[in-house]
Design a protein around this nucleic acid. Structure first.
Lengths: 139, 139
DNA sequence: CTATATGCAAATCATTTGCAACCAG
DNA sequence: CTGGTTGCAAATGATTTGCATATAG
């Protein structure tokens, strides 16, 4: 993901291009595993030591609002951010606290079919997400 | 769930029976929809105005440790507690912020079968949970 | 008795907020 | 120009911690 591609993402969402936004966006895409705000701040500080913490939070909020990124809830109690805004499930390792995306169309079809058969009273389903809990193993 | 049943739950887990623990336990079982610590405190305060906030948090932590209750993460950023410790999924309404438990053996069998066929490299699955997002509707 | 639980108030820590100064379009 | 952004520092709010006191077994 180069400089121009990042700029395009901001422009498509009609967001002003600022160095801070570029830095945060680059961080979210570069840090693979669903970074916390703190990890993003650390990542940015190497090249951009003067960015304000509050600004990072504000930029992240704007991105979430404009659906450039998504917020992710995890077992620990800090917010994490995900550059992948498409529908996907999460693999979560309780030992190393890593999250990985998971996607499979067969699975989604299976779920879709199941919930057509088993509608829930007085409830409209908008989205079904799996949290696949377990442990990553050394090979 | 009467007084004796609550006492038995504590005794089985080898926890000392104190008025505070009884009050918190009763609250978690009485408040249906996955209460926050604050809701538990409010519920208790009616009958037990002098309980300390810190004590409620400590009691909740002990309960989670001893697996009397479970912590639940939601879209808002407060911790919620769930008296149902058995395997189940969650129905979540983004509008009214309510959570409801969902359980269906056919669904679990379906998922189990699916993940046998589709093992994930270098990952041992311990548990798969669904978050069913949508909206409750008036009837 | 004695270990454990409670009350209290201070501490923590991620996140939010208010506002003046700044800068992208 | 001018409204949207940033930096800063103070505020917030849920949760935690430390310690002296109280109490369950």
């Amino acid at each position: 993901m180069n400089h121009n591609e990042l700029q395009n993402i901001l422009q498509e969402k009609k967001l002003k291009i600022t160095p801070q936004r570029m830095a945060v966006l680059e961080a979210v895409y570069s840090i693979k595993h669903h970074p916390t705000a703190e990890q993003i701040i650390d990542y940015i500080h190497v090249r951009y030591p003067n960015i304000a913490i509050g600004t990072v939070y504000k930029v992240l909020d704007v991105f979430v609002q404009k659906q450039v990124i998504k917020k992710v809830k995890t077992e620990d109690d800090v917010m994490r951010y995900d550059g992948n805004i498409h529908h996907h499930h999460h693999i979560y390792c309780g030992e190393c606290n890593h999250i990985e995306d998971y996607h499979n169309e067969e699975l989604d079809a299976l779920l879709h079919e199941y919930f057509i058969k088993h509608a829930i009273d007085n409830f409209i389903i908008e989205d079904v997400k799996l949290q696949i809990n377990g442990r990553f193993i050394e090979q």
